[in-house]
Design a protein around this nucleic acid. Structure first.
Length: 471
RNA sequence: GGUCCCAUCGUCUAGUGGCCUAGGAUAUCGGCCUCUCACGCCGAAGACACGGGUUCGAACCCCGUUGGGACUGCCA
C-alpha cells in the first residue's frame, strides 16, 4: 500500500488457501472476511493457491476449494494464481536478498538442526536456529538452503487492525529458511513476494499467523517493499474449545452442502462468527457487504455453533423461492427413490413443508410421501391407526371425497360433520386419515395434505389403507 | 519452557466509564395455538474468570493472577 499518498489507495485483499485439504470452516470464514472487506471498499479480491509444498498439494483439493468458493458465491477479481508457477520469481527475490546481504547460504543438515533443537529443548531454552552459517559467507552447495538474515536486536512493531499494536523483540526471531535445499521457496518468502507483486493492501488472515507477521514484515523491508496492513481474525474452535478438526464432525464447507444447508445460511453463520453488527443476526449478502468492516471483528476465538446454523438454515429455507427449493431438493430426493418428482405436486407441497424442515435433507424426507405413488407405511403407525376400529371412518371419508372432492374448506366442514355424527374427536378422524395418506403419524395439516394430493390420489391411498385396516 | 494473543449467559454475541437490577440470538425448560409434527407467539432460568488499583462512578482504563489458544518446521 502506497503510504506516501494522501488519498486512500485501492483496497486489495487475497485469500491464499493451501490445496492440502478441503476448504474448511476457518478458511471459508477467512475467505469471506477478505471478500466482504474488498467488496465493502470497492476493492479487488484475489485468489491464490499456495502449493509450494509439492508433496501435500493435490489437484483434487484445488478443484474442491474452487467449487466451495463458487458454492458460497465468493467471486474473485483475479486468479486463481498458483505459487508453483511462480518459482522463478521467488528465486529472483532470493537472489536479491543474497546480493543485498539480507540472506545467506546455510549448510547445516536437517539432522544437525534436529539435534540442536532437542538439546535446546532439554535445556529449556527456546529452540531457535543458532546462526552457525550466518557469518560464514558460504555459497550454494548440495543440500544447502538459503536463510533470511534477520536483525539481532531491536523491535518489530505493527498495528493489527483487529488486535491493536503488537510488538516483538527481534532477538526472539531466528533466521528462517526462505529457499529449501530442493530449490523451492518456503511459505514465508512466497507469501511476501506474492503479496508485494499482487499489490495486496490488507492481509486478513487467521490468528495463527500473528507470530509470523514480524518475520514477514522484516522480509518486506529487506525486499524494500511497502507494508500492507495486517488484520488477524480469531480462530474457530470445536465444541471442546480446541482447534476445529475432523474430530468435530462436519468441518468442510462442502460437507454442509451435502447435509442440506443453503449457501446463504452458511455465509450468514460464518459472518456472525467473530463479527457483529449490533444485535442483528440475519443478513442478506448485500447487507453483509454494506455493514462489514474490520472494527467490528472480535478478538477472541469462537466455537462454531451448529445449532445456530441449523436454525438459520431453517429461516433461509422458509424464505427461499419455491422454484429454487424445488431444484435444490432434487439431489436429496433421488436417493429416496424419487427420481422424477411431479413438478406440480412438488411445488404444491413445498410451502407446507418449509416451516417443518431445517435442511434440504429434511425437506426431502417430508416431501417423499407426497411424491411417491405408494408412500412407505410405518408399521407402528398402521398398527395404531389402521385397524378394524378405524375402517368405518376411513370408508366414510372415502365416500366424502368421492362426493365432494378435496377442497380444504369442504373437507373441514365434512370432517366436522362426521365427528359430530360419530361422536368422535377431530384427531380420531384426522390421524387415521393422515396415516392412510402419508404412511406416518406426522405431516402438514390434514386438509392441506388432502388439497395437495387431490381426490384421485386420496381415493387410491384410502383404499389401500382400508385393505390394511380390514385385515 | 519461550514468545505472542485472548477472556460477558452452555454457545455466538451487544456493550467502548454513568443509558447495565448487563441486551439480542441459539440451545434448554414452561405455557398458548392445535387434527399430528413443525412454524408462530408469550414466559422462565442462565454471564461480566479472580484480585488489586485509577475514578464521584468500571463489564468497559491500568497492573497482577488464573485459565485457554497460537506459534516455536527445509508445513502453510
Amino acid at each position: 500500500m502506497a503510504q506516501t499518498d494522501d488519498h486512500t489507495p485501492k483496497v486489495r485483499t487475497r485469500f491464499p488457501p493451501s490445496p492440502t485439504g478441503a476448504l474448511h470452516l476457518g478458511g471459508a470464514r477467512t475467505a469471506l472476511f477478505n471478500w466482504l472487506f474488498s467488496r465493502h471498499h470497492h476493492g479487488d479480491f484475489v485468489l491464490r493457491l499456495e502449493d509450494t509444498d509439492r508433496q501435500r498439494s493435490k489437484e483434487e483439493h484445488v478443484r474442491g476449494i474452487l467449487q466451495a468458493m463458487e458454492w458460497l458465491g465468493l467471486d474473485y477479481d483475479e486468479g486463481p494464481f498458483f505459487q508453483s508457477q511462480r518459482f522463478e520469481r521467488y528465486c529472483q527475490a532470493v537472489e536479491q536478498l543474497l546480493q543485498s546481504g539480507r540472506a545467506y547460504w546455510c549448510h547445516c543438515s536437517p539432522e544437525i538442526l534436529e539435534q540442536k533443537r532437542e538439546q535446546a529443548m532439554a535445556a529449556k531454552a527456546k529452540p531457535m536456529y543458532d546462526g552457525a552459517c550466518r557469518e560464514q559467507g558460504l555459497g550454494p552447495a548440495p543440500g544447502a538452503v538459503v536463510r533470511y538474515k534477520g536483525p539481532r536486536s531491536g523491535n518489530t512493531v505493527y498495528n493489527d487492525l483487529v488486535k491493536g499494536p503488537i510488538s516483538f523483540d527481534n532477538a526472539e526471531l531466528d533466521d528462517l529458511v526462505i529457499l529449501r535445499s530442493d530449490g523451492s521457496p518456503t511459505y514465508h518468502l512466497a507469501v511476501v513476494v506474492d503479496d508485494i507483486d499482487m499489490n495486496i493492501s490488507h492481509v486478513i488472515r487467521g490468528d495463527d499467523h500473528v507470530n509470523n507477521t514480524p518475520r514477514q514484515i522484516l522480509l518486506y523491508q529487506a525486499l524494500d517493499a511497502p507494508l500492507p496492513l495486517f488484520a488477524h481474525v480469531p480462530m474457530i474452535l470445536g465444541p471442546d474449545k480446541t482447534k476445529l478438526s475432523k474430530r468435530h464432525g462436519a468441518t468442510a464447507v462442502m460437507d454442509y452442502r451435502d447435509l442440506g444447508y443453503l449457501p446463504e445460511a452458511m455465509l450468514n453463520a460464518l459472518a456472525r462468527l467473530g463479527w457483529s453488527h449490533g444485535d442483528q443476526e440475519m443478513f442478506s449478502r448485500q447487507e453483509l457487504i454494506d455493514y462489514f468492516d474490520l472494527d467490528a471483528v472480535g478478538r477472541s476465538a469462537a466455537v462454531f455453533d451448529q445449532d445456530k446454523l441449523l436454525r438459520m438454515n431453517q429461516r433461509y429455507i422458509q424464505a427461499a423461492e419455491a422454484s429454487r427449493l424445488a431444484e435444490l431438493v432434487r439431489p436429496f430426493l433421488a436417493p429416496r427413490g424419487v427420481e422424477r418428482p411431479d413438478p406440480e405436486l412438488l411445488s404444491a407441497c413445498l410451502p407446507e413443508l418449509t416451516p417443518r424442515a431445517k435442511t434440504l435433507l429434511e425437506l426431502s424426507e417430508w416431501a417423499e410421501p407426497f411424491l411417491k405413488e405408494e408412500p412407505a407405511m410405518d408399521p407402528a403407525a398402521a398398527q395404531k391407526f389402521l385397524g378394524p376400529a378405524q375402517a368405518p371412518v376411513l370408508e366414510r371419508v372415502l365416500a366424502l371425497v368421492q362426493e365432494l372432492g378435496s377442497a380444504p374448506q369442504a373437507m373441514e366442514e365434512a370432517f366436522q360433520g362426521l365427528t359430530q355424527e360419530l361422536g368422535l374427536k377431530m384427531k380420531d378422524v384426522a390421524q387415521p386419515v393422515r396415516v392412510a395418506l402419508m404412511g406416518r403419524t406426522f405431516s402438514p395439516g390434514i386438509f392441506e395434505v388432502m388439497a395437495i394430493l387431490g381426490p384421485e390420489r386420496i381415493k387410491a391411498r384410502l383404499k389401500r389403507a382400508l385393505d390394511l385396516a380390514r385385515e
